[in-house]
C-alpha cells in the first residue's frame, strides 16, 4: 500500500488553474522526487498535503486515511514532517529548543516511531556545536539544518523537503543527499521537490513531473529524463539525456 497518495487533485487560485487532476502514489521507504518548471505547483502540492491549503477537489491519503480535511497540526501528528523552501526556523530559539519543542509536540505523539535521540539529531544535522546559539544568528545552511532537525524530532514516517538544496554549496548539497539516503534506509520516506536534476537523478527511486496542472510523467529518474513530454516541457523539444545536470 502507498504511504502517501494524491488522488485526482484539483486546485485553482481565482482563474488560475494550478492542478487539473493530479495523481501521485508514493511507496513506503522510497525517495520520491517531484519536479516541474517554476509555477508548476510543487510547493502548492506540499501545502495541500500538509493541510496549509485546501484542494478544490480530490483527496490526499496517508496510510490509506483521507487527510485532506484535517488541520495541519493533526497531519503533523500523524507523521508527516516538512522542510520549507523559504527557511522557517523558530528564530528566537536555539537549535536545541527548536528540536525540543518539536519532540514535545508531534514527536511525543509519534514516540513509538522514534529513531533518533535529540543528541543524535543534533549530530547528524551538524548542529552539536551550535545548539545553544540563537537560530537567527546562524548561517543559511545551518538554518536549513535546524529545519531538518526539527522535522526529524517529530518522529515522522515521511518528510517533505521543499528545495532543500536552494542556496547551498556543492558540498552542503552532497551532505543533504547523503542524509536523505540515510533517512530512507532507516525507514523514513522522503519526498523531494528540487530544481537541481542531478540531485533528483542521484538519490530518487521514483520521480513525477508536474506541468500545466498535471503529472505528465512518472517513473525512475532515467525514464523521466528520456520522456519526450518532459523534454518538451523543459527544453522545448530538444532532446537531452542530461537535463539540468
Amino acid at each position: 500500500m502507498a504511504i502517501l497518495e494524491v488522488r485526482d487533485l484539483k486546485k485553482s487560485f481565482g482563474g488560475l488553474e494550478v492542478f487539473a487532476g493530479v495523481n501521485i502514489s508514493i511507496e513506503k521507504d522510497q525517495i520520491y522526487g517531484i519536479i516541474g518548471t517554476n509555477g508548476a505547483g510543487k510547493t502548492t502540492l506540499f501545502n495541500i498535503i500538509c493541510g496549509v491549503l485546501r484542494a478544490d477537489q480530490g483527496s490526499v491519503l496517508f496510510n490509506g486515511e483521507d487527510i485532506s480535511k484535517k488541520p495541519t497540526h493533526k497531519i503533523a501528528e500523524l507523521g508527516i514532517g516538512r522542510c520549507f523552501q523559504t527557511v522557517m526556523p523558530f528564530k528566537s530559539m536555539t537549535p536545541l529548543e527548536n528540536v525540543r519543542v518539536a519532540r514535545a509536540t508531534a514527536g511525543k505523539k509519534n514516540k513509538e516511531r522514534e529513531k533518533f535521540s535529540i543528541d543524535e539529531i543534533m549530530e547528524i544535522t551538524n548542529l552539536t556545536d551550535k545548539m545553544h546559539i540563537k537560530t537567527q544568528e546562524l548561517s543559511l545552511p545551518d538554518k536549513k539544518n535546524v529545519e531538518i532537525a526539527r522535522a526529524l524530532a517529530c518522529n515522522p514516517e515521511i518528510i517533505l523537503f521543499d528545495e532543500v538544496s536552494c542556496g547551498l554549496s556543492g558540498e552542503e548539497i552532497y551532505s543533504r543527499m547523503e542524509l536523505m539516503k540515510k533517512l530512507s534506509k532507516m525507514g523514513i520516506t522522503v519526498v523531494v521537490v528540487e530544481h537541481i536534476m542531478l540531485f533528483i537523478k542521484e538519490i530518487c527511486d521514483q520521480v513525477s513531473v508536474l506541468h500545466s496542472g498535471k503529472v505528465i510523467c512518472s517513473g525512475t529518474p532515467q525514464e523521466v529524463a528520456r520522456d519526450a513530454g518532459v523534454i518538451e516541457a523543459y527544453l522545448g523539444g530538444k532532446s537531452n539525456e542530461n537535463i539540468g545536470s
Partner: peptide, 24 residues
C-alpha cells in the same frame, strides 16, 4: 518549558508551528 517554547514557536512562524503539531 515545552509550553513556553510553543508560545515562541507560534509567535515566530505559525505555519511551521502547525507543521510540528502545535494547535495554534
Amino acid at each position: 518549558q515545552d509550553l513556553g517554547l510553543r508560545f515562541k514557536a507560534v509567535r515566530d512562524v505559525p505555519t511551521a508551528a502547525r507543521m510540528i503539531g502545535i494547535n495554534i
